[in-house]
Each structure stands twice: as structure tokens, then as C-alpha cells.
């Protein structure tokens, strides 16, 4: 019986999900109010966020206890793997929507706006070239160059992928020091990336006149890099959690799915960056 029971894992009833829903309700309602300038908005979002953090701590805490308590069989581990892979697939599709928008504006809408009929009747002086902020944008702006900060950031993220893999090797060979150092290096590289990206944004706003409102170039640029930056932040946070767990002695060479999940996520964020670098900054 005990053999069999450990094949599956069906958890006890849990109150974390409903707390998560409460958090989402507060955040959703708050966001609606916020964008409509209702004073309660930001407070509601903040409250929801706190509840969310509380829920994440509690929920993941439970999972970690269960995992360290040896309740997860190989089968359960397999479930986690499938689950994480499909989650990452959903993230891929989310980014695909924005890359799709970029592709569409570059190859279809901007050229279309400069087509013969449009030029004759709507915008006499618009020309089809990228970057473009559209026929209604009267100011000037400088697009972001690829070979400054973005190139450095590419190197940073690529090396962070390497250090993370190195840490993973350490874990597999049970070299805890290598694991810890690798993780710390990865996190540092990630944080530096975020810092540089913030500098880049500041530069864009203060000197390049490149803003979220700078036509479709600004829109796609900031939304794509912004969502990516958000994901890096998330990834770095998760890595930090893993680091703390490593320091408390969690994970074994043959049982460390949480580590791998975060690593997959980090590599996914890497790949998105490469696409960004090529499609947004470079070409």
C-alpha cells in the first residue's frame, strides 16, 4: 500500500488557491480603478500583491516541504516536468503575439500607410522606412542602437546561461560550492542586465526622445523589451529562492526539479533576448 501510495500524490484540501483568487480579485479590480484614475486603485493593487506574495510563500513553502519530505515519486516529478514545459510554451506564445505585432507593422502596416492611395489622400509626406513612429508623429527620435548596451546585455545573458549550467553540473556531481558560486554569478549577471536595461530606458527617455508613446516603434520596443525585462526580474527572483534553498541544503543530485525548472525558465528568457536583440535592436 505505502509503495502504491507514493506512486501518486493527491494533496490534502488547501486554502492557498482561494487566497490566490482573492489576490487576483484585488489586483484586477485595483488595476481597473487605477487606469481609470480612481483613487482606491493603487491601494487595491498593492493589497492584492501582498496577498499574492503571502500565497506564493505559503503555497511554495508547502510544495518545498512535501518535496523535501520525500512525498514526490518519479511519476510526480514527471508531472512537474510536463507542467513546466507547457507553461514555458504558453509564455512563448505570449511573446509571439508581440513579435507578431512587430513583424506586422514592419512588413505590412507601415508600407501600407505609405502606399499610393494613402499618400495621395491621407499622408502626403510619409515614407516607408523602419524605424517609424507613423505619419502622425511630428517630433524626431533616435532609435536604440544595437551595439552599445544591448550588445553588452547579450553577452551578460549568454554568460549567465553558461554559469547556470556550470552550477547545474556542480549539483549533479554534488559539488555544492560550485553550485552556490554558479548560482550567485548567474544572479549577479541577471541583476546587472536589469540595471543596464534601466539605464538604457533612462537614456531613451531623457536623450533619445524614445518613449512608449513614440509611435509604433516606441510601442513595440518598450513592450517587447519591457516584458522581457519583467521576465528576467522574475527569473532572478526565482534563482534567488533557489539559492536560499541550496544554502539550506536542499536538492540532491537525483532530485532537484525546482532547480531545473528555474534553469529552463532562465534559458527561455535568454532565447527571447536573442530574438529581441536580432529583431528589435539589430535588423
Amino acid at each position: 500500500m505505502s509503495q502504491q501510495a507514493s506512486r501518486y500524490f493527491v494533496p490534502q484540501p488547501s486554502h492557498w488557491p482561494i487566497i490566490g483568487s482573492l489576490a487576483l480579485a484585488l489586483m484586477g479590480a485595483g488595476a481597473v480603478m487605477w487606469v481609470n484614475k480612481v483613487a482606491a486603485g493603487p491601494y487595491s493593487v498593492a493589497a492584492g500583491f501582498c496577498v499574492l506574495v503571502y500565497m506564493l510563500f505559503g503555497w511554495f513553502g508547502t510544495v518545498i516541504r512535501e518535496s523535501e519530505g520525500g512525498k514526490y515519486s518519479k511519476l510526480v516529478d514527471g508531472s512537474f516536468r510536463w507542467g513546466m514545459s507547457w507553461f514555458i510554451f504558453s509564455e512563448v506564445m505570449f511573446f509571439a503575439a508581440f513579435f507578431g505585432a512587430l513583424f506586422y507593422t514592419r512588413t505590412l502596416s507601415v508600407p501600407d500607410l505609405a502606399s499610393a492611395d494613402n499618400l495621395g489622400l491621407l499622408y502626403p509626406h510619409f515614407s516607408d522606412m523602419w524605424p517609424s513612429a507613423g505619419p502622425g508623429f511630428k517630433d524626431k527620435f533616435t532609435p536604440m542602437a544595437a551595439w552599445g548596451i544591448p550588445a553588452i546585455n547579450t553577452l551578460l545573458l549568454l554568460s549567465s546561461g553558461a554559469t547556470l549550467t556550470w552550477a547545474h553540473w556542480g549539483l549533479l556531481k554534488n559539488k555544492r560550492a560550485q553550485l552556490t558560486i554558479g548560482l550567485i554569478l548567474t544572479i549577479l549577471l541577471g541583476v546587472t542586465f536589469i540595471y543596464l536595461q534601466a539605464t538604457e530606458y533612462a537614456e531613451a527617455y531623457s536623450h533619445l526622445n524614445l518613449k512608449l508613446t513614440t509611435g509604433v516603434y516606441g510601442s513595440t520596443f518598450f513592450m517587447l523589451t519591457g516584458f522581457h525585462g519583467f521576465h528576467v526580474t522574475l527569473g532572478a527572483t526565482m534563482l534567488t529562492v533557489i539559492l536560499f534553498r541550496v544554502m539550506s541544503g536542499h536538492f540532491k543530485p537525483d532530485h532537484h526539479f525546482a532547480f531545473e525548472a528555474v534553469a529552463w525558465y532562465w534559458h527561455f528568457v535568454d532565447v527571447v533576448w536573442l530574438l529581441l536583440f536580432v529583431l528589435v535592436y539589430w535588423l
Binding site: 487606469v35 505570449f94 511573446f95 509571439a96 503575439a97 508581440f98 505585432a101 506586422y104 507593422t105 505590412l108 502596416s109 507601415v110 501600407d112 500607410l113 517609424s132 513612429a133 507613423g134 505619419p135 502622425g136 508623429f137 518613449k211 512608449l212 508613446t213 509611435g215 509604433v216 516603434y217 516606441g218 510601442s219 513595440t220 518598450f222 513592450m223
Partner: peptide, 26 residues
């Protein structure tokens, strides 16, 4: 779909131009 409505949201409130011809969108 989430991406689409997010772009809608930023077009509505944060001045992006995904769906506005004046800004080069469509």
C-alpha cells in the same frame, strides 16, 4: 489573446500606437 488585450490596454491608457494609423500601427 492575452497579448492582444494587453496591447489594447496600453493603447487605451499608456499612449502606445499598436492599433492607431497615426502612430504607424493598424
Amino acid at each position: 489573446l492575452a497579448g492582444a488585450v494587453t496591447m489594447l490596454l496600453t493603447d487605451r491608457h499608456f499612449g502606445t500606437s499598436f492599433f492607431s494609423a497615426a502612430g504607424g500601427g493598424d
